[in-house]
């Protein structure tokens, strides 16, 4: 059945079962590949998107439940001032290595800075706990969030 989806400000009509994880709709149907598949069980955060401004794991969010929601992915988060600041900080500090986790890291970090513009290191660690980086870029992720916070303050 056709389900309509509001993603990055555009409406898409998707022919898929309501039980389909949002992750696979975004990737396989809409061919937007910035949102990544890492684990499928909500334990890595690579698939993080925003649902009405809140970070969620799209591998555990189902198409049937998001029909009326506004979904934002990494492809559009640069239009958000927090997203743009984080992307700028990521480039300044060369946070990435393989880069595969980084869409999810930035999507989660936007959620953190939206509710806490000046997080402490402990607050960053606790909020970002669910975003795994197998390359262990954590030290720079922490620094990147602190830098973005500075950029936003200026």
């Amino acid at each position: 059945m056709a389900i309509s989806l509001n993603l990055n400000g555009q409406t898409h009509s998707v022919e898929a079962d309501p039980d389909t994880p949002l992750l696979w709709v975004i990737r396989d149907e809409l061919k937007m590949t910035g949102t990544k598949f890492g684990c499928g069980v909500a334990s890595c955060g690579a698939c993080t998107v925003h649902l009405n401004g809140e970070p969620v794991r799209s591998c555990q969010t189902y198409l049937g439940d998001v029909e009326d929601a506004e979904i934002t992915t990494i492809e559009a988060i640069g239009e958000d001032r927090i997203g743009a600041a984080l992307q700028q900080a990521w480039v300044e500090l060369d946070v990435v290595q393989c880069g595969y986790c980084q869409s999810g890291q930035i999507m989660s970090a936007v959620g953190l800075l939206a509710e806490n513009p000046k997080p402490s290191a402990e607050e960053i660690d606790s909020y970002m706990h669910g975003n795994a980086c197998r390359c262990a870029t954590y030290q720079r992720i922490r620094a990147g969030i602190e830098r973005a916070s500075e950029i936003l303050e200026a």
């Binding site: 880069g99 980084q102 869409s103």
Partner: peptide, 27 residues
């Protein structure tokens, strides 16, 4: 000297193997 791939990996445009979507492909 900065990495050449930082921007693409931070904005979702970097293409990994799993991001290969060819017309009519099967999984």
């Amino acid at each position: 000297v900065r990495r050449l791939d930082s921007a693409a990996k931070g904005n979702g445009t970097a293409k990994f193997a799993i991001d290969t979507y060819l017309p009519n492909q099967m999984v």
